[in-house]
Design a protein around this nucleic acid. Sequence first.
DNA 1: TTTTGCAATGTTATACTATAACAATCTGGG
DNA 2: CCCAGATTGTTATAGTATAACATTGCAAAA
Lengths: 161, 161
Amino acid sequence: MPLSLSFQQSDHNHEHCIERALERAEELCRVQRQRLTAQRRRVLELVWAQHKPVGAYAVLEELQKQGRAAPPTVYRALEFLQQMGLVHKIESLNAYVGCAFAGQPHDAQFLICEQCDELAEVEIPRLSETLNEGAAISGFEPRRSTIEVLGLCPNCLDLRP
Amino acid sequence: MPLSLSFQQSDHNHEHCIERALERAEELCRVQRQRLTAQRRRVLELVWAQHKPVGAYAVLEELQKQGRAAPPTVYRALEFLQQMGLVHKIESLNAYVGCAFAGQPHDAQFLICEQCDELAEVEIPRLSETLNEGAAISGFEPRRSTIEVLGLCPNCLDLRP
DNA sequence: TTTTGCAATGTTATACTATAACAATCTGGG
DNA sequence: CCCAGATTGTTATAGTATAACATTGCAAAA
């Protein structure tokens, strides 16, 4: 079960959501003999603070509230977390989000609301297959794909004029 | 017929390719009563110079070989060209490419070779439909999507060890 | 337990990408 | 011709990311 099932309801307990993400991260790093240091854990926590993409410099500002920190600190942590599959970069926003499917191999697919900035990581049925088959027609061998859909989320559609 | 049909063969006449893109641009701007000024035309030409994404500052350097130019000059031209649907931004590379389907409404889809940097704008059968239907399942209303696939192009696959 | 070597972090500087703000100039329609 | 809006010039600065090298921490080998 993914950590985030599409867009969240107002009754969504996000504290619990963050906790689960951190626990899962601990587990994954332990299994893969990688070190989820305090610094990395803190950055992951900050990225998970909202179901919205977070800029690296926003993370940095938070870190700086508890002591000194410089950009490389954040970018290194983010790089590690991306390599571990715990965080994704949203290319169209230059921002980062916690991965909803950590530990499960998958192609990242995002729905991003341009009204409220909320983001949902999804797995659209047959999308990866369609994409891979289509690429193969061109004789192309896909390795990594960026799929980011901008639009309006159900919550914002409901509130519309 | 698209200006670029998947990946190019070595016998591909790129001069001709650029010319067609410029002619099409002239036509589109004329019909839509927009001004394809010398500056904008030159930027479009530079973006089309290769079937690879080009950085804004690379374009700037070329412009500077023929007189002064500053970043806003390039970014304004690129913004205009994007709005006219003549150029796409490749989000995962912070770079720009000429649109292969100028004048035809479409969702942008790119195959990008990580070996040779060549890029093909494609229209993968049923991909947009699958994506839109999938988003609808989440109650999401898509407006614009970013689809960029990184991998190996047929040319580079042939040359592999 | 001490050593040791690599992993992680700190620190400073800088590269790269993009836009704000305002002045000057150009262009097409009245 | 004249004007209003569009385009371009110019300077400065915001925002994103990495290079390079010093220092510290940690865990396995001796």
